[in-house]
Simulated scan of single mutants.
Amino acid sequence: MKDIILIGIDFSDTSNNALQYGVGLAKKMSADILLVWVDTTPADEDAETQHEKRLEAKHKLKALAADVEARNTGVNVRCKLRKGMVHRELAFVAKEVDARLMVIGTDGISGVEEFRIENNTFRIIAQSPCPVISVRQNYKVTDKIETLMLPIDEMKNTTDKLPLAIQLAKDIEAGIRLLNIYHPKIESLRNQTNTHSTKAAKILEKENVISDVDVPIHTADPKEVVEAAVNSAVDMLVIMTNPVMSRADIPEGILAQKVIHFSPIPILSVQAKPI
């Protein structure tokens, strides 16, 4: 049975770019594609208007699916319409079909709103039962996905993203490069980063997916993390996120959110899976 890549569609330029990226992944992974459109119209809108919107969306989805299949031999595309809140419905469908990955588009946010934990992109990522790749609207999609970058810091669960990253790298024939994030002042925390990095490098070498030397930075500032990835010319940044369940989780969620919105390159967000 083939893996399924779920792609959220709203017919905007942003989601169309995510679709193009998802198609490239599907070809590399020999996976099927499921396009999902969510009807977010208010329940009090008249029935005829709702029906017309759903009918129009259904026709557009079918046209998109037919176009993708016509342009990409061997790629199978299905469509599904849902009604409700986008993040909940995408998560429901992803769980229902046991999606391997979800691909969504994001515009990035500037100003005050970039720090809001409630934004839709991060809600989708936090609710999703599968890893999510977020792609910026202005990202130039190509067939090149050669290097993934994994940030490694002093946190004890920092290597939990390795299993999924390794499997994806093997599936798309890519390498993995480590980004070592050192605490700027506390030596004991710097040593912990070194310990985790050494462990990760050994695993990557054993799995034959290690790519080039490690990149060190001395700050966890999201902009610096993104800048290091961009300067290293990697094709994807892999970060770990957790649903916000309590006040203690909020700092980690906000940092992940900032990385997602600052990054011009695709971000793969995964939830912890210990190795």
Rank of each mutant, 00 (worst) to 15 (best):
residue 3 D to K: 15
residue 8 G to K: 03
residue 9 I to N: 06
residue 10 D to C: 03
residue 12 S to L: 06
residue 15 S to A: 14
residue 18 A to H: 10
residue 22 G to P: 01
residue 23 V to A: 07
residue 25 L to E: 09
residue 27 K to N: 14
residue 27 K to A: 14
residue 29 M to G: 09
residue 29 M to C: 07
residue 30 S to Q: 15
residue 30 S to E: 15
residue 32 D to G: 11
residue 34 L to R: 10
residue 36 V to N: 04
residue 37 W to P: 02
residue 38 V to L: 05
residue 39 D to F: 06
residue 44 D to Y: 15
residue 45 E to A: 09
residue 45 E to I: 15
residue 49 T to R: 12
residue 51 H to I: 08
residue 56 E to I: 09
residue 58 K to G: 10
residue 62 K to M: 14
residue 63 A to Q: 14
residue 65 A to T: 07
residue 70 A to I: 04
residue 72 N to W: 12
residue 75 V to I: 15
residue 76 N to T: 13
residue 76 N to Q: 12
residue 77 V to N: 06
residue 79 C to S: 04
residue 80 K to Y: 05
residue 80 K to T: 07
residue 89 E to C: 07
residue 90 L to I: 06
residue 90 L to V: 03
residue 90 L to A: 03
residue 94 A to M: 12
residue 99 A to D: 09
residue 99 A to P: 02
residue 100 R to I: 01
residue 101 L to S: 03
residue 102 M to Y: 10
residue 103 V to R: 00
residue 106 T to S: 11
residue 108 G to C: 06
residue 112 V to K: 12
residue 114 E to V: 11
residue 114 E to S: 12
residue 114 E to Q: 15
residue 117 I to N: 03
residue 117 I to E: 11
residue 118 E to P: 00
residue 122 F to R: 09
residue 123 R to V: 01
residue 124 I to S: 02
residue 129 P to D: 10
residue 130 C to E: 13
residue 130 C to G: 04
residue 137 Q to W: 02
residue 140 K to E: 09
residue 140 K to D: 12
residue 140 K to R: 10
residue 140 K to C: 04
residue 143 D to W: 00
residue 143 D to R: 01
residue 145 I to L: 11
residue 146 E to V: 06
residue 147 T to A: 00
residue 148 L to H: 01
residue 153 D to L: 11
residue 153 D to E: 05
residue 155 M to C: 09
residue 159 T to A: 05
residue 160 D to T: 07
residue 161 K to W: 01
residue 163 P to F: 03
residue 164 L to K: 13
residue 166 I to V: 15
residue 171 D to H: 10
residue 172 I to W: 04
residue 173 E to K: 14
residue 173 E to S: 13
residue 174 A to R: 04
residue 175 G to F: 08
residue 175 G to M: 13
residue 176 I to P: 07
residue 178 L to W: 05
residue 178 L to T: 03
residue 183 H to E: 13
residue 185 K to V: 15
residue 186 I to R: 05
residue 193 T to A: 05
residue 195 T to S: 04
residue 197 S to Q: 00
residue 198 T to G: 02
residue 198 T to A: 12
residue 198 T to N: 12
residue 199 K to R: 07
residue 199 K to Y: 11
residue 199 K to T: 08
residue 201 A to G: 00
residue 201 A to K: 09
residue 202 K to E: 15
residue 203 I to S: 01
residue 204 L to C: 11
residue 204 L to R: 00
residue 204 L to S: 08
residue 205 E to P: 00
residue 207 E to S: 00
residue 207 E to V: 07
residue 207 E to N: 05
residue 209 V to Q: 02
residue 210 I to A: 14
residue 211 S to V: 01
residue 214 D to P: 08
residue 217 I to P: 01
residue 219 T to W: 03
residue 220 A to G: 11
residue 221 D to C: 07
residue 224 E to P: 00
residue 228 A to N: 07
residue 231 N to W: 08
residue 232 S to V: 03
residue 237 L to P: 00
residue 247 R to N: 14
residue 250 I to E: 15
residue 250 I to M: 15
residue 252 E to S: 10
residue 253 G to E: 09
residue 254 I to K: 12
residue 255 L to I: 13
residue 255 L to R: 12
residue 255 L to K: 14
residue 261 H to L: 05
residue 264 P to V: 10
residue 268 L to I: 14
residue 268 L to D: 11
residue 271 Q to Y: 06
residue 273 K to Q: 15
